[in-house]
């Protein structure tokens, strides 16, 4: 099954996130990723929802019924600029330090904090790139990892 990305413009009203997520889960569908944030328009927020649905049409229609949902656009993967953010804390020691930092640099992750025995990297990019980076760091001992929801925007035709 391939992923589908919905870009949902909503009114910035209390409970709107709960309404959207419960509408999706109520119909028995899973969400791979969901992120919400303000838009350049006052009182409007944008949600990016990533699912793996066959039934995405039905979900779109059900979401459209919500009074606070203004517009839903399904993004064409070919035309979509997508990004995700990651923060990763990894163990380091004298022996591994250089190698870790080198690998991070090559992955274009930014080191934001380095201590005696740990380093924290920040990275933005496609989910694939973030997955790759995680794999790369794994052998050194990941202490903690946080990833933000995926956000996406349609590029011009």
């Amino acid at each position: 099954m391939s992923e589908r990305i919905l870009s949902v413009l909503v009114e910035d009203k209390p409970g709107v996130l709960a309404r959207v997520s419960s509408t999706i889960s109520r119909r028995g569908f899973n969400i791979n990723s969901l992120s919400v944030g303000p838009t350049h328009i006052e009182g409007r927020s944008k949600m990016t929802i990533v699912t793996e649905l066959d039934a995405v049409e039905q979900v779109k229609k059900q979401l459209n019924k919500l009074v606070n949902v203004i517009k839903i656009v399904e993004l064409d993967p070919e035309m979509t600029i997508e990004t995700e953010v990651l923060l990763l804390k990894v163990s380091i020691n004298k022996d591994t330090q250089t190698s870790v930092i080198e690998k991070a640099n090559l992955s274009s992750a930014k080191s934001v904090d380095v201590g005696q025995d740990y380093a924290i990297f920040e990275m933005t990019g496609s989910s694939k790139d973030l997955n790759k980076f995680e794999k790369l760091m794994k052998p050194f001992g990941i202490i903690e990892m946080v990833r933000g929801g995926r956000i996406a925007i349609q590029s011009n035709l």
């Binding site: 209390p14 409970g15 709960a18 309404r19 109520r26 019924k65 009074v67």
Partner: peptide
């Protein structure tokens, strides 16, 4: 009440 009735109403308000 708003949470409990969310899936049982067309819309609700606090």
């Amino acid at each position: 009440t708003v949470g409990l009735s969310m899936a049982a109403t067309k819309h609700n308000y606090l």
